[in-house]
Design a protein around this nucleic acid. Structure first.
Lengths: 291, 291
DNA sequence: ATATAATATAAGTTTCGCTAATGCCATGAA
DNA sequence: TTCATGGCATTAGCGAAACTTATATTATAT
């Protein structure tokens, strides 16, 4: 039983003419005849009296016509309900931590929007803790965080590895070096991330590996405040290079690479494992992830 | 959109398992997967979350599940309504005039019942006027009458031609002839059909053709009463031979053929032109009609 | 990490519905 | 009544769609 057949039956009842009904549906008169025959065959009862011209409904036909109408109405209703749901499901919520700025995501977003121009993409910024929580609660669809942590319900894919550099005020002695050995940080006043920030742990591990101890002068939960503190020479810090663009350009800060090796802060895309993704969402994830 | 697909979707939702759903419908697991994919494709929205095991409905899926249920319910409802209508439509009402006895129809009815054993066939007897009226009102489906009259709304087909014979009491002078010239009826006391009975007109025409005048002693609307009148020698009559079987067998009446020619009373099957006929009804008509 | 159970995908086959051509039937005009 | 005409049914052949089998992929538990 096909809904299309019911539609054809209804139109046939209303038009009282096989050929015109066929034309309306873009099929042959024969097809309409066969569909009706099949309908009658499957119920083993005549629906239309062909011994009269124009054709007329039998009692069974009238009953079936009403039912067909009801069924088609219900189907059209659910179709439009789904269409509405689809609209809302094509809103993708992406959230990134503060230190992964718009300038990092911009090229990806531009590329994405050019392919899915109708998708409503929202980009917001929270701290890492909020991103994990909102992701699990289903409020956001994709998160971009630093040093992604493993979680049973979260799938993570690597994103960009951001070079970590030494940051200091232009008046600081190390400001004029082109490279610096990490051991020179020994005993320096240091502006660090709060304990809760994943990047803090990551940097601590690097310092530990080289057995360097710094004097933690201040702790902040975001790069902006750290940069302000370094600007007024309250200490030095280690930050991801992409976060320093503006300050390096206008000379309020100096960045120095490490001579020992290139340090990186890994960033990653995180999504809920169990959540279904729209085609667009899937594409955005594939665009962002790097294998 | 196929109703079968909706049924499969509902079962899938309830069983939460593709393979078992497939088994339930007697198809392969792959087919279920493909049908669901097609369903989602046509609405461009995901209905089932396969990233979870067991599978679970998406919001859209829940909406669609309810609609599918509604649609299938409505369809089942109309199906059973049609089944009820079918039951009543497979009752065929056949009506014959009194003088066409069970013994004439019996072989046809037996043959018919052997082919359509489930059909509820009712055979009733009325006078010709009632048969025409009930046929037009749709109370009966097939009529068997003598000398069928033409009518715009009635289709008639020839049935058996019944030989017309002279009937008289065994004590009547003509009773011992093997054949009789119709002219010998001149001036005889005659037991006739009522004016309204078609056979009356038919017999009158035959007598007129041979310019024979009889003395109409009595008029009755049925053969039985005529036979009783002839038995007590109230007069002679002309009747269809098949109506005399019993009386000829037990010797209460004598029948004599005419020497001039074989006279016949044509009988016919009548049906309403505009009425749809079931397969069984059509078959019964074809069984009865003689071309 | 790996095994297992479950779903998706791919290729080949069958089934089903469509078209085109033609036959049959109902209706109205001559 | 008969014939012409418009309209529905029927048939054969073909092409698209759905099914099956086999295999790949994915999710979950151990």
């Amino acid at each position: 039983m096909n809904l299309q057949t019911l539609k054809i039956f209804c139109d046939l009842v209303e038009l009282k003419n096989f050929s015109r009904t066929a034309e309306l549906h873009g099929i042959s008169q024969s097809a309409v005849s066969q569909q009706l025959a099949q309908l009658e065959m499957s119920h083993k009862i005549q629906l239309i009296n062909r011994r009269k011209r124009p054709i007329e409904l039998t009692a069974a036909g009238q009953v079936f016509y009403q039912a067909s109408k009801d069924i088609l109405d219900r189907y059209n209703q659910v179709s439009s309900e789904l269409a509405t749901l689809k609209q809302s499901s094509t809103r993708i919520h992406l959230a990134a931590i503060f230190s992964i700025g718009m300038h990092t995501l911009q090229p990806y977003i531009q590329k994405f929007m050019s392919i899915y121009p109708d998708v409503n993409l929202s980009v917001e910024y929270y701290d890492a803790k909020d991103i994990y929580e909102k992701l699990l609660r289903g409020i956001i669809d994709i998160g971009v965080v630093a040093v992604p942590k493993r979680d049973r319900n979260i799938e993570s894919y690597p994103f960009e590895n951001e070079p970590l550099v030494l940051v200091c005020s232009p008046s600081h002695p190390l400001a004029h070096e082109s490279q610096v050995d990490i051991h020179h940080l020994q005993g320096e006043k240091f502006i660090a991330f709060d304990e809760g920030v994943p990047t803090r742990k990551h940097i601590d591990e690097i310092l530990n590996r080289y057995q360097v101890t710094v004097r933690t002068a201040m702790e902040f939960d975001n790069t902006e405040t750290i940069k302000r503190a370094v600007e007024i020479n309250s200490g030095i810090s280690i930050l991801p290079a992409p976060t320093l663009r503006a300050e390096l350009a206008n000379g309020t800060l100096k960045a120095v690479e490490f001579s020992n090796e290139s340090f990186f802060r890994p960033t990653g895309i995180i999504v809920r494992k169990d959540k279904t993704r729209s085609k667009a969402g899937q594409y955005l994830i594939e665009l962002l992830r790097k294998e």
